[in-house]
């Protein structure tokens, strides 16, 4: 009877989680965002499991297929480990310089844009309209990439 090589499978799945969770999960907290140590911890556990799985797959009684599959799983794990710093530090900085963006001390350029109810809204309105019945002390404009 064939026994499932569970260390390979769990190690492989965990390396996927370690590789892809940063932009979706760990960017949310300052502590896991500034350095991806949470992802590195997940990778470390994943590689321990992969190592156990490989040892099991390379025992003499195992089939060649399981040797190939477990090796592939380990290679994918390594590629993900290498891809993570690339995504965070290289791809993450593919941004325009925005050297002409308005500076501290300048008036924010006026605008009229459409809100989510299709109504036009001006910056002047946003600066005046009360929050909890008191005039706002300030407005934070957050430019973001999009809903996707």
């Amino acid at each position: 009877m064939k026994r499932l090589n569970w260390p390979i499978w769990t190690g492989f799945l965990l390396s996927l989680v370690a590789g892809f969770s940063y932009p979706f999960v760990f960017v949310r907290w300052a502590i896991t965002r500034e350095f991806p140590w949470a992802n590195l911890v997940l990778f470390a556990i994943a590689f321990v499991l992969l190592a156990f799985g490989l040892r099991r797959a390379f025992k003499p009684d195992k089939e060649i297929v399981s040797k190939i599959f477990s090796s592939l799983a380990a290679v994918v794990g390594l590629l993900l480990l290498g891809g993570l710093p690339f995504v965070i530090y290289v791809a993450g900085s593919w941004l325009p310089a925005s050297s002409e963006a308005p500076r501290v001390g300048q008036k924010a350029p006026a605008f009229t844009l459409t809100d989510s109810n299709n109504k036009p809204v001006t910056l002047a309105q946003l600066l005046i309209e009360p929050i909890n019945n008191t005039p706002p002390k300030g407005v934070l404009l957050i430019f973001y990439r999009g809903y996707w």
């Binding site: 500076r103 501290v104 924010a108």
Partner: peptide, 13 residues
């Protein structure tokens, strides 16, 4: 691109 501006009530950044 991502950017954040905090304006005071006069609209100054």
């Amino acid at each position: 691109r991502p950017a954040e501006f905090l304006l005071d009530s006069s609209g100054t950044i």
